[in-house]
C-alpha cells in the first residue's frame, strides 16, 4: 500500500502525512456514530427512546448537533488553573489514543507503519494517555479533578500489566510482535482464531484482556476516574467546549483502539470467519471493523448494566485476580508451546 502510494505521489514524506490521517477518517465518524449508538443502546436498555428528533431518522444527527454546540462554546480556562498544562492536556490525551492506530492493521494490505514490534509499540504509546489525564487533573486546580487523575493513573498503571501479559501469551505462540504476523497466524478456518486455540487458556486470556481493557479506557465497571456520582466528572470537571470534546473523542478512540486490538489478537483480525470465502483486502477492513464494533457494543452493554467498583476493589481485581490468572495463562501457554515443540 505504502509503496503504491510512493510510486503514485513520488514524495515519501507526503505519503506518510497522508497515511497518518487515514485512521482519523475512520475515528471521527466512528466517535460521532458511537456516541449516538451508545445513547440509543442506553435508552433502549432502559425502556426509553433516546435522541429521536435531530436529523429525522431516530435522531442520527444528534452528536453532530452536540459537536456544533461544543465548538460554539466559550473556551473557559479557570483563573487558578495552570494555563499551559490545562490547554495541552486534551491534546496529549488524544495524541496518546491516536498514535496507537499507526500500528493497527486494518486489512491485509493496509497498516500505517509495518514495524515488527507493533504490539509492543501500541502497549507503550497507550500508556501515554495517563500523562495527559494527570496533566488535566493537576492543572485544573480542582480537588475533584485531582482525585480523578490520581485514580486514573493508579488504574491505568495497574491494568497495563494484565493487558501486556495476556497479549504476551499470544506473542509466545506466534513468535512475533508484528500484528500482521499475528493476523496471518490466524488465517484459514475460524478455529485458527486465537480465542479458540489452546482452549481454555487463550479464551481466558481474551476475557482477562477485555476486562483489563475496560479499565484501561475507564469504562464501567472501572469508570472510577470519572465516576459521575462521586467525583462530579473526574479529571475533566473543569473542561468545556472543544477541549471537553477532545477528551470525549479520545475516550471513544481509545475504546475503539482496545477493541480493534482484541479483535486482531484474539478474533482473527481481518480474517473472514468463513475461511477463504469473503476474504480479501476490502473484506478484511469490513471484518476487522465489525469485530471491533462487536467489542465496543459489549463495552456499552456492560456500562448500562453494572455498578462501578470502589477504588480499592479496583486494585483488588487488578492485582489479585487478573494478574495471577494472567501469569497462570502465560505459564500454561509456555508449557503448551514447549511441549508442541
Amino acid at each position: 500500500m505504502k509503496e503504491l502510494l510512493v510510486d503514485l505521489l513520488g514524495n515519501e514524506l507526503l505519503v506518510y502525512v497522508l497515511m497518518a490521517f487515514v485512521p482519523l477518517l475512520w475515528i471521527l465518524p466512528f466517535a460521532l456514530f458511537a456516541v449516538w449508538w451508545e445513547r440509543k443502546i442506553a435508552a433502549h436498555m432502559q425502556d426509553r427512546l433516546g435522541p429521536m428528533r435531530t436529523g429525522g431518522w431516530h435522531g442520527w444527527a444528534q452528536t453532530i448537533a452536540d459537536i456544533l454546540k461544543l465548538i460554539q462554546k466559550e473556551d473557559i480556562i479557570p483563573t487558578a488553573a495552570d494555563r499551559l498544562l490545562f490547554s495541552l492536556a486534551p491534546f496529549v490525551v488524544f495524541i496518546g489514543a491516536y498514535t496507537a492506530f499507526a500500528a493497527i492493521p486494518f486489512s491485509a494490505a493496509y497498516v500505517g507503519t509495518e514495524i515488527n514490534i507493533g504490539l509492543f509499540y501500541i502497549i507503550a504509546v497507550s500508556s501515554f494517555v495517563v500523562i495527559g489525564l494527570l496533566m488535566a487533573g493537576w492543572s485544573s486546580n480542582n480537588k475533584w479533578s485531582l482525585f480523578g487523575a490520581m485514580r486514573s493513573a493508579a488504574q491505568v498503571v495497574s491494568y497495563e500489566i494484565p493487558i501486556a501479559l495476556t497479549l504476551l501469551a499470544v506473542v509466545m505462540i506466534v513468535g512475533s510482535f508484528d500484528l500482521q504476523e499475528i493476523n496471518r497466524a490466524q488465517s484459514g478456518s475460524i478455529l485458527n482464531w486465537f480465542i479458540f486455540q489452546k482452549f481454555p487458556l487463550l479464551f481466558a486470556a481474551a476475557l482477562i484482556y477485555f476486562v483489563a481493557s475496560l479499565a484501561e479506557v475507564n469504562r464501567t465497571p472501572f469508570d472510577i476516574p470519572e465516576a459521575e456520582s462521586e467525583l462530579v466528572a473526574g479529571y475533566h470537571t473543569e473542561y468545556g467546549g472543544m477541549k471537553f470534546a477532545l477528551f470525549f473523542l479520545a475516550e471513544y478512540a481509545n475504546m475503539f483502539a482496545v477493541s480493534i486490538i482484541a479483535a486482531t489478537v484474539f478474533l482473527g483480525g481481518w480474517n473472514s470467519p468463513f475461511g477463504e470465502a469473503l476474504s480479501g483486502p476490502l473484506w478484511g477492513v469490513f471484518w476487522v471493523l465489525s469485530k471491533s464494533m462487536g467489542f465496543v457494543f459489549v463495552q456499552m452493554w456492560l456500562r448500562w448494566t453494572l455498578p462501578r467498583l470502589r477504588v480499592d476493589q479496583l486494585m483488588y481485581v487488578g492485582w489479585k485476580v487478573l494478574i495471577p490468572f494472567s501469569f497462570v495463562i502465560i505459564l500454561g501457554v509456555g508449557f503448551w508451546v514447549l511441549l508442541e515443540g
Binding site: A42, T220, A227, R308
Partner: peptide, 9 residues
C-alpha cells in the same frame, strides 16, 4: 453506586 439502568426501571 454507578448502576444507571435500575434507576430508570
Amino acid at each position: 453506586i454507578g448502576a444507571f439502568t435500575p434507576f430508570l426501571y
